[in-house]
Structures are given as structure tokens and as C-alpha cells.
């Protein structure tokens, strides 16, 4: 598997003080350029998994490799974190500097990029997330969505292969969520950046290449969004929701209307209804 950016192989991990958020025997492969979503309720272990991939936590059993490097090996820690960057949940608690461009520079400074190379990389990273006009602003004057995009730029400037998003939209309003989602999907599509998107919003997982459902520290479902969301009952058992259109489709099927399987989005549903009613 030369082209697997992230490979998690039978990994277990537990905190001494908090067994609830442990990860148990998880295996997962994210090939280069793909967009994978991990769904799960709070305490399902999804955030712990993210931190295992970035080398912030080390597995107690099993092996995590990022671009072929084992997270266990200390010499590669910084290279792993550079190549698989991470964006966290709270937009206020991950920006370090009092000026946007200095914050984007933070990672570059840490990995020792020569000063003269920094401005170009910072400018490009900010442009890629549509924040170039805010280079001189103070973070506390930005909206939540803008702060998250600055955080993404900070990771992008380090030229990563993959970015792990740990519930990066959970604290944003719909507009902020859309801004961040659009930016990430564009990076995935246009620059081939591998994305691991951790969330509990179903609708954000609809556009992923693959969806993995975590429950109680384990991956319990894996597949394309259509495969995963067609099983509403199982999702409900994991205390997860299904997208509204999948729910309506289910109700219609129960009443005898022959809606096809795999209806997830509004346009899926509209097409299906038009087909049946015309």
C-alpha cells in the first residue's frame, strides 16, 4: 500500500483516567487524495483516533503509519505532524499569534523554513483559503469561520499531504460551516490534499468518498455515504442521525411508495419524486 497516506492497523489506546474515550482495535486506510469522514457521537473515540494519527498520542497496541512513517518512532514525529496537519474544534484556542500572517508563519518557524521563503508560502496558503485580505488583522476581530480558515492556512503553509479535521465546524454557525467546508473540499479536489474529516454532522459526511462510523471506541460501519446512510436503524442505534432526506425516503417506503435506495440529498429526492409522480 504505497499510496496509503494514513494507515491505522489494529490500534488500541486508552487513557488511564478516562476509559470512555478509548480506541479499541481500529483499522483504517486513507489512500492519497481521498476525503474520508468519521462519524460518531461525543465520547465515541473519534477525537482520540485523530490525535493518534498526528502522533499526539501513541498507540498502546497496533501501529499507525503516516506516509510510511511509524508514529512510534520518535525521529519522525515532526515530519509526521508536518505531513498530516491538524485543525481542531475551537477556533479561539488554536491561533497563537496576535496577527494573522504571523500565526500562519508559526508552523514554518517551528520546522525551520528560511525566513526569505516564508512570505510567499504564507501568501499562497492564505489565498488558498480566501483569507489573503486579512493577513494583517488580529485574530480576535475575525468571525469563527474566518479563524478556522486561518488555522487551515497555518497547516497548509507547511505543505502537508493530509489534513485531519477534528470537529472543526462544531462551534461555527451555518455560514462559517459552509465557508470552511467549501475551502476544504476545494483543497481536496484541486490540490489533491487527503482529508480525514471528523464530525457529528451527517450532512458534512454526505460528500465524502468514504464514511466510517465510530461507536464505543470501534469502527462499526464503513462504506460509501449511500451505503452507510441507507441503514437508518443501525445509525440510530449508535445514537446518530440520518440526513433528513434519507429519513423521509424511509418513511415513504414504509407507506408503500417505491423510493429507490441511496437517496441522501435534496436533489436525489426531487429527482426520485419527479420520476415517480410524472
Amino acid at each position: 500500500m504505497a499510496d496509503a497516506i494514513i494507515q491505522v492497523d489494529h490500534v488500541s489506546f486508552s487513557y488511564e483516567e478516562d476509559a470512555a474515550t478509548a480506541v479499541r482495535d481500529v483499522s483504517l486506510t486513507v489512500p492519497r487524495g481521498e476525503f474520508h469522514a468519521i462519524l460518531g457521537q461525543n465520547g465515541s473515540g473519534k477525537s482520540t483516533l485523530a490525535k493518534l494519527i498526528n502522533g499526539l498520542y501513541l498507540p498502546t497496541e497496533g501501529k499507525v503509519t503516516v506516509c510510511g512513517m511509524d508514529t512510534q518512532g520518535e525521529k519522525d514525529t515532526w515530519e509526521i505532524r508536518r505531513r498530516a496537519g491538524m485543525v481542531f474544534q475551537n477556533p479561539d484556542n488554536q491561533l497563537v499569534a496576535t496577527v494573522v500572517e504571523d500565526d500562519v508563519a508559526f508552523g514554518l518557524e517551528n520546522i525551520g523554513v528560511p525566513s526569505q521563503d516564508m512570505p510567499a508560502r504564507i501568501e499562497k496558503a492564505l489565498r488558498d483559503v480566501g483569507m489573503e485580505a486579512f493577513a494583517g488583522r488580529a485574530p480576535h476581530t475575525l468571525s469563527g469561520g474566518q479563524k478556522q480558515r486561518v488555522a487551515i492556512a497555518g497547516v497548509l503553509a507547511m505543505e502537508p499531504d493530509a489534513i485531519i479535521f477534528d470537529e472543526s465546524t462544531a462551534m461555527l454557525d451555518p455560514r462559517g460551516r459552509r465557508e470552511v467546508m467549501d475551502a476544504v473540499q476545494r483543497l481536496n479536489r484541486e490540490q489533491g490534499i487527503t482529508v480525514l474529516w471528523i464530525t457529528h454532522f451527517m450532512e458534512e459526511a454526505v460528500a465524502a468518498d468514504r464514511v466510517h462510523v465510530m461507536h464505543d471506541g470501534q469502527i462499526v460501519m464503513s462504506g460509501t455515504p449511500r451505503e452507510v446512510f441507507s441503514d437508518a436503524e443501525r445509525l440510530a442505534a449508535y445514537r446518530l442521525d440520518v440526513p433528513p432526506m434519507a429519513r423521509i425516503a424511509q418513511a415513504l417506503r414504509q407507506k408503500g411508495m417505491p423510493i429507490a435506495d441511496g437517496v441522501l440529498t435534496v436533489s436525489d429526492m426531487a429527482k426520485e419524486v419527479a420520476r415517480l409522480c410524472k
Partner: peptide, 18 residues
Amino acid sequence: LDVPSVCRLGIQLRQMGV
């Protein structure tokens, strides 16, 4: 602003002549 997804469905259906 968002609208309920059911409203979006209604709008699309009406545009398709349903």
C-alpha cells in the same frame, strides 16, 4: 440564511414541474 431542507425539496420539485 438556510431554509429547512423540506422547503428546498419543495422549491426543486416546483421547478421540475411537480
